[in-house]
Design a protein around this nucleic acid. Structure first.
Lengths: 165, 165
DNA sequence: TGTAAGTAACTTAGCGCTGAGATACTTTAT
DNA sequence: ATAAAGTATCTCAGCGCTAAGTTACTTACA
């Protein structure tokens, strides 16, 4: 049994036997899987005229609180993109009537982003199909394997300083 | 102990208790790690006036064979991007004198891409620092944990049809 | 042999993101 | 009270990618 990364590792060992390429065995596979997952999840989003960026914002608002409401800064922290990207995502979602921007009552600089009824309806329709797609993508592993994988990835994230907030 | 994804899972269980969000425990962490790794590797590439795209091409040529030479199609298959992206990457690398494009002798449509001496020197300088950076990123796991993680990721890649070629 | 289908590489419009910077408001310190 | 520093959001030029389409060549077959 061998995947693409096994070939790459073999090639490196042949051409540069002085270098231990084993870290690529983890990081190469991880980034390859990430790309494959992304492509597949995108196919599902497209059925609902969504992309990853829009889905991320809608889903983050949906799960955040009962009001489905956050600041742009809150969305930024959750999404790992810059503030400029959030502004542009919100422009698109606002144009489509899926979210609203309301000035903060307490802070003149602040804005509150809230799911509209239309946005709520859409994300609640897409979410189950999204989770189903993810489950499909993981169906090559048994449940204990999946749990073990999640635990290893969590250890790694924690070692890199990933925090709850 | 909890990472950012644990928080997300809790939020989903609170807002949508009818949906089992556990697939996100794997896929969410995986894509988060991929983004963190990418950012850190980029910092290293930047020291050598490289980006991920250029590094990928140079490294693929370096490990491919003794001539350090492939077709654009070969580079495309290895890199998971489109043919248009490869054309543009090669434009940039050719302009910098790191690779050459030579017409194929047997196929009038074909092109052979080869590392120049300058390109070879650069990739051989960057490669050890790249692997070191990767090893650093994985230092939160023990060696057996790393091996186990690589094995689980390989199983998953194989289940998704990832092949050696 | 001629032509249709297939293949390799390239071109380009459009897209979303980054990084830098601008704007407007708030907090802190004097 | 006022200036300086800090914060929240937005704007925009530039970048690399995708998707669609083009060009040039090769292969298969009628």
């Amino acid at each position: 049994m061998a995947d693409h990364v096994d070939l790459v590792l073999e090639q490196w060992r042949a051409r540069r036997p002085d270098i231990d390429p084993s870290p690529m065995g983890v990081i190469g596979r991880l980034s390859r899987l990430s790309a494959l997952f992304d492509a597949e999840l995108r196919r599902n989003f497209a059925k609902y005229e969504l992309d990853r960026a829009s889905f991320d914002v809608l889903a983050t608002l949906r799960r955040s609180n009962a009001e489905h409401s956050l600041t742009p800064a809150g969305l930024m922290h959750s999404s790992m993109v810059t503030s400029g990207a959030i502004s542009q995502r919100l422009d698109r979602l606002e144009t489509r009537g899926l979210v609203t921007r309301t000035p903060s009552e307490t802070d003149g600089r602040g804005v509150q982003v809230t799911l509209t009824a239309k946005g709520l309806k859409l994300i609640d329709k897409v979410l189950p199909t999204h989770v189903d797609t993810e489950a499909q993508l993981l169906s090559g592993l048994s449940t204990p394997e999946r749990d073990h994988l999640a635990a290893l990835l969590r250890t790694l994230l924690e070692s890199l300083g990933d925090k709850r907030d």
